[in-house]
Design a protein around this nucleic acid. Structure first.
Length: 492
RNA sequence: GCAGUUGUAGCUCAGUUGGUUAGAGCGCCUGACUGUGGAUCAGGAGGUCGGUGGUUCGAAUCCACCCAACUGUACCA
């Protein structure tokens, strides 16, 4: 009696959560998106620069990793000399380091762009990954609101270059100084309480006025019954905050807000950005002041902007999906000066390429058709591989993507199946009959697939051999080209 | 992190009040039609029923704990 065959313990092949493998279609889409964004950034005068994915942890932010939880939010590890290193979580902090390190040799203002993967160790969601691509542009060394206005205009241009039409996106602009004015008016001294207020404001688009009102006051209970403690503001203060972040600013401003000097400064800057944008033909349908935009909590010092898609996105099951902002940025006057004794004003804009791609894919705005595979030269007679390889080379030399079938050539069926899976436009066949006549068969798989739908029996199928024709060996390249042209096959 | 929901084949799911060797469709592999894939037919592989412990004569099914995924929420430089 045989024992139960004990299976060897197999290693489970699995991808850590929040990460994704990317196939040809996704890679192609990313490549096209990146190229379109690059063209816009180049047109605005930015030049490329690239920095590594790893930086000293303290160069990225002011916090060293906690000894107990060194990977809170960011992926960190220690170098040989015990210094903490981290994977970058955005492209702005590394750029600040780069500019500070090469300050004397760079032209000022220094205007550059770069695309790359960034990493965040946090909970993933739809369109939210732990590794994702950003595409940034920054102007370092200019304090002018014109530099900020330009970022907003470029954001709008980029969206349109990516195929998001006017009216389907909006660049929302606010100014941290305006928010500081609100703080002044409220007289909030405690940092913790102010952070709670800002977080509440940031949630306006998601939770609505009533949700924000709850978060500014006692707190809010979510759908699952979980409770979030609020900022504990009084009713009159809540009213002041809500009036300050309201879209419609036509009502007379609360005296406390009006009297804040820093708040007024912020409003003046916003007004300038608005004027610059308007002068260049960007109306409020594209670039709009929105006093509820907060943008993170750390390094922004002045204008902040956020690009939002206005289209309803639904997932495969038809459920609505929230993507949040697909891009954003702002002024970070303090980031470079951390490395230097002097003030270095800077402003930048970042597109979340991965998130935007996820959104555009769901919206059907991206070309997700798979790339065409190569022309496959089949192996009819095993001992004539050299001949077949010669056909392959002839095609390749004429810049036609081609390959020899390298699997087990025991029958034709497997070879056609392979070609089908590769999405090949056609295959080349040469048996002894064709060989004797100095000919090959070219089988048009795209045309054949259409014909197959109408044919019921295998016998009929084989007798008619649809979409297949023969030609002289010397004509292979020309005839293949005809097939490619008929189906508009283009590679790369 | 907190809360809710859900874990059965590669995928989508059945699985009756706890009762023999856990099923289907699709996919995959093999074969038939022996110079041509998608049709059809025949066969096959594939499951620690998320994991561990418990209750029971008996657990995919009941209980406890753990793990994972999804959704919401918090955090997000």
């Amino acid at each position: 009696m045989a024992d139960k065959p004990k299976k060897p313990q197999k290693l489970k092949a699995r991808l850590p959560r929040g990460l994704e493998d990317r196939g040809p279609a996704a890679i192609k889409a990313t490549r096209q998106m990146v190229e379109k964004i690059r063209q816009v950034y180049e047109r605005y005068g930015f030049e490329p620069v690239e920095t590594p994915a790893i930086e000293y942890t303290h160069a990225l932010g002011k916090f060293l990793p906690d000894q107990d939880r060194p990977n809170e939010g960011v992926f960190s590890f220690q170098d040989d000399d015990e210094q903490w290193l981290s994977l970058r979580y955005d492209l702005t902090a590394p750029l600040a380091r780069y500019v500070a390190e090469n300050f004397d040799t760079l032209p000022k203002p220094y205007r550059s762009y770069r695309a790359g993967y960034v990493f965040r160790n946090e909970k993933p969601g739809p369109g939210r990954f732990r590794q994702f691509m950003q595409f940034d542009a920054d102007t370092v060394g200019s304090a002018s609101p014109a530099a900020d206005a330009e970022m907003c205009m470029m954001a709008a241009d980029t969206m349109q270059a990516l195929g998001v039409p006017r009216g389907s996106y909006v660049v929302k602009v606010n100014n941290r100084k305006v928010l500081d004015g609100v703080r002044e008016a409220l007289g909030i001294a405690g940092e913790a309480q102010w952070l709670t207020v800002m977080r509440a404001i940031d949630k306006l688009d998601r939770l609505g006025v009533s949700g924000v009102r709850q978060l500014l006051g006692e707190g809010r209970k979510d759908e699952s019954g979980d409770f979030t403690k609020g900022a504990g503001l009084q009713e009159s203060d809540i009213a002041l905050v809500l009036s300050a972040i309201e879209q419609d600013q036509s009502a007379p401003m609360d005296a406390r807000l009006r009297d804040s000097k820093i708040g007024q400064e912020g409003r003046d800057e916003l007004e300038q950005i608005n004027q610059f944008a308007a002068a260049s033909g960007y109306g409020t349908d594209r670039i709009k002041i929105d006093p509820s935009v907060v943008r993170g909590l750390e390094y922004y010092t002045g204008p902040v902007f956020e690009v939002e898609l206005l289209l309803d996105t639904k997932d495969e099951k038809g459920r609505p999906v929230r993507f949040g902002s697909v891009g954003g940025g702002g002024r970070y006057d303090g980031l470079v000066s951390r490395f230097r004794g002097e003030v270095v004003p800077a402003t930048g804009f970042s597109i979340g390429v991965s998130r935007l791609q996820a959104a555009l894919t769901l919206l059907g705005k991206l070309d997700t058709r798979p790339e065409f595979g190569p022309v496959v030269v089949t192996v009819f007679d095993r001992d004539r591989i050299a001949d077949y390889q010669k056909f392959v080379s002839a095609l390749r030399n004429e810049n036609v993507r081609a390959e020899l079938y390298l699997g087990n050539p025991k029958n034709m069926g497997n070879q056609f199946k392979y070609a089908d899976r590769r999405n090949s436009p056609c295959v080349i066949i040469q048996g002894s009959d064709e060989k004797a006549r100095g000919e090959v068969q070219i089988k048009d798989l795209i045309e054949g697939a259409k014909a197959a739908a109408a044919i019921a029996s295998n016998q009929e199928w084989r007798e008619t051999r649809p979409a297949q024709f023969s030609c002289k060996e010397e004509e292979i390249v020309a005839k293949v080209r005809e097939v490619l042209a008929r189906h508009d096959v283009k590679w790369g």
